[in-house]
Design a protein around this nucleic acid. Sequence first.
DNA 1: TTGAAAGCGCTAACAA
DNA 2: TTGTTAGCGCTTTCAA
Lengths: 338, 338
Amino acid sequence: MARPTIRDVAARAGVSLGTASRALSGNGSVRPATREAVLQAAKDLDYRVNSLARSLRSNHTASIGLLIPDVRNPYFSQLAHVVEQSALEHGVTTLLCNADERPEQMAMYVDVLRERRVDGVIVSPFADAEQALAGLDDDAIPTVFIDRRIPGSPTPSVTSDTSSALDEAIALMSRLGHRRVGFITGPRTTSTGIERIEQVATAADHHGVEVEWQEGDFHTESGHRAATSLLGSGVRAILASDAQTTEGALSAIVEQGIALGEGLHFIGFDGTPATALIRPSLTYVRQQVQEMAATAVDLLVRLRAGEIVTSVRLPSTLVLGGSARPAADHLTEERSCA
Amino acid sequence: MARPTIRDVAARAGVSLGTASRALSGNGSVRPATREAVLQAAKDLDYRVNSLARSLRSNHTASIGLLIPDVRNPYFSQLAHVVEQSALEHGVTTLLCNADERPEQMAMYVDVLRERRVDGVIVSPFADAEQALAGLDDDAIPTVFIDRRIPGSPTPSVTSDTSSALDEAIALMSRLGHRRVGFITGPRTTSTGIERIEQVATAADHHGVEVEWQEGDFHTESGHRAATSLLGSGVRAILASDAQTTEGALSAIVEQGIALGEGLHFIGFDGTPATALIRPSLTYVRQQVQEMAATAVDLLVRLRAGEIVTSVRLPSTLVLGGSARPAADHLTEERSCA
DNA sequence: TTGAAAGCGCTAACAA
DNA sequence: TTGTTAGCGCTTTCAA
């Protein structure tokens, strides 16, 4: 037999279509014995529900969309993994969509998600994303922002608050004797890019430090370029603004054979696998990626249930490694070479 | 108005339901003027097809499933990205599923993919996956193996042939004067794990080298553990079997402060972002990940079209870096410290 | 608790 | 080329 339908199951169990549906979906009451019979018949036939038909009728798909800039970015691939697993715990599958930081591709995916009638969307937006995202609103698809948000938007968001960690970072650089600190920025097209620029500016003011701004775009290449330029102009204290610029900056530093923590103090963002290969170890801003992802799913589920939810802001911390460490801790420092 | 349906579009364009459907889906002939009118009406109404209804009726979903061990593995996240983009070029969306190397989770996802009636599946299998995957066969869902395969299975696969690269690697170690080479294996539950063990064994025989086998499981932790153990027993030539064990082994080497390329020769697998931070640069086996992913999508599309396809095996190469380089090239070597 | 019947939005025959 | 109609497989009223 071709794929058995619920009709076949009902027939085999000797009940009506409706009863079989109630037993299988768990909605509506069924006498235990009847339910058993239906379940057994389904098993005998190796029946599998057609989610297309179910969703068409019931008006929900048990699926959400996750719209991120790029899975290959280790920060987002971790995010994607936790979102997927958290959603699974709610019986919901995730449609992963890579916008590639391109508004057109984001718009295209928004269309796909609308057509597929997903129950909700978790998105990490960027400039010009607002218009692309408007379609979700038109269809009243619950949406949650993750990592980044659109200022002024009523959409609830789960983001991390990096202000105190960045203040600590600048304070540390100041304490290490630096009057000039290089900062590799993120793009002004993202909320995180803008925020971190402002936070660093404020902290620098506060600690009497001058910032050497270097434009970056959250890609490794720009991190590499910016770090090279900063090193060329004699800066000996560098801060990166995300995981990828951190990797890029480190590769430039490593290339030039500069001793981290001695000739140069460096503070990165997010502890990715790559940064584990650095000696001395990396001082970096740690964001709560896992919590962020799990919280976003939770918010979306509650939004879908009709609850009113508010945005969540998770604190981040400065993790001390050898690449920039307060003098007092210097004894514990170990260096592999140089 | 709530979501407009194709009825609304037809009414506005002054045509019948069927005509509107033909104009919108592109199947069947429609007079150009009529088509224009329908498209205009659809645009006016901001109509979006309900893919659930379309798929239910037409019996295809324009979606495929991608079943991989873990997106966080940089090797697979790259694979996932290319698969997604290649599929998009065919107008097909990708459902990304992380099996987490667990048969139950793979079985669960196979169920999900069956219920969602995907048009095809690309999967990177492991031991005990065969039974979980049987469900795809029951539903006659076209399947292609990627990176790994199940020996003896009729399912077409796209894999890389690492034999000559690994032979070169062993030859290089031999030429560098090593009689003993440590090899961090992959799990015997994967075809790649088994193959690489055999290929290394053959090459070692061939070049008169003895292999110090260290069990690994394609995770960073095991790479770290294995490398530590090998270094402890005095081995000074190490080979890893995949991207993750490479990262793990490197972190162990870096931790111990051992000078790569001098006190120790190391050859890794796959050039991930992390390995770009290593000095001297890494000697590694490069697989054609992008081609692999694109080819798998192509195979699946052709399979779906009823073509008979055959498995593809892509050659891989040994990329020379400073971590293990033939003596002749030694002049070009640059070291950052030590 | 169960059955009968309607219909979700669309495509694909079939006729005209 | 177009309109009409049946029906994909399921859930969900409504009665019984």
